[in-house]
């Protein structure tokens, strides 16, 4: 049932990547527990704008958990305290009346802060550009049913392909490693005959790009899997390690 709660927000505010940030405290009252977390932030911003102050900057777009644009480190968890959801799918019914909620940006060398809670994740695009594709051009392609693919493999590839590129795995990792993200893409393609062809090249290229862009090593803490809103499994990392090792051995 809908309830109305009053909360206190501690929000990280930072003008730019090189400037020093700090927490600002804002009380917010009259929040419906049926609102989403971002609707609650809209309320805060509406109040700030009405006072002539600059609103809190945060990334968001689809607001239904699929575009990967929203981020936020809420009370110490990427995408907040609820399981298997992104910040935009988080609802205020997960919070208590009178609670203080701390909101920070992703913190990682790979994702510099742009403003307040907005960070720069172009490093993920760069990793993709290094090898996150099957090298086919448009047109001149055999019929889609020419190569049967076992349903088990197709379904598993689909699970890996569900990654939304949000970066929560990096934010959750004490080494700021991007292994879960990279391994999900490598696995998706490795499981399909179309992607298998250049599997070795892809694994090496994507891992090399990840290292170059300043992401850390994976020490198997499993924090990424626990915080991933899309349930991407760390078994993908194991598969990436195998792929990578085989590729290196073949060299």
């Amino acid at each position: 049932m809908e309830k109305i709660i009053n909360i206190t927000l501690k929000v990280w505010r930072q003008r730019g990547p090189k400037e020093k940030g700090k927490f600002e405290t804002y009380p917010l009252s009259g929040v419906s527990t049926d609102s989403s977390f971002l609707e609650m932030l809209d309320m805060l911003n509406e109040e700030l704008v009405n006072k002539g102050q600059e609103p809190v900057v945060f990334d968001h777009d689809c607001r239904e958990g699929i575009c990967g644009m929203c981020s936020l480190y809420i009370n110490g968890h990427p995408h907040g305290p609820d399981e298997d959801v992104t910040t935009c799918q988080l609802h205020m019914r997960k919070f208590k009346d009178g609670e203080t909620i701390t909101i920070e940006p992703w913190r990682s060398a790979g994702f510099p802060v742009i403003r307040d809670l907005m960070v720069d994740r172009t490093a993920f695009d760069k990793i993709m550009q290094a090898g996150g594709y099957v090298s086919v051009n448009t047109g001149g392609i055999p019929d889609a049913n020419a190569i049967p693919i076992s349903k088990v493999d197709a379904d598993e590839a689909m699970d890996s392909a569900s990654c939304i590129g949000c970066g929560a795995c990096v934010a959750a990792c004490k080494n700021a490693s991007a292994m879960l993200f990279v391994s999900a893409k490598v696995s998706q393609f490795a499981l399909l005959p179309q992607g298998r062809v250049e599997g070795a090249r892809r694994a090496k290229a994507m891992v090399a790009a990840m290292d170059e862009l300043g992401f850390g090593n994976c020490t198997n803490t499993g924090a990424c899997e626990a915080e991933c809103p899309k349930n991407i499994s760390i078994s993908n990392i194991a598969r990436l390690n195998r792929e990578y090792l085989c590729a290196k051995l073949a060299d």
Binding site: I141, I149, K151, F189
Partner: peptide
Amino acid sequence: SGSIIDQCVAQGVPFAREYGGLL
């Protein structure tokens, strides 16, 4: 329309499949 499906499968889009392996 048919070429689109061919294209996407070639790119590694994991469309749903039946047990026989077809789309």
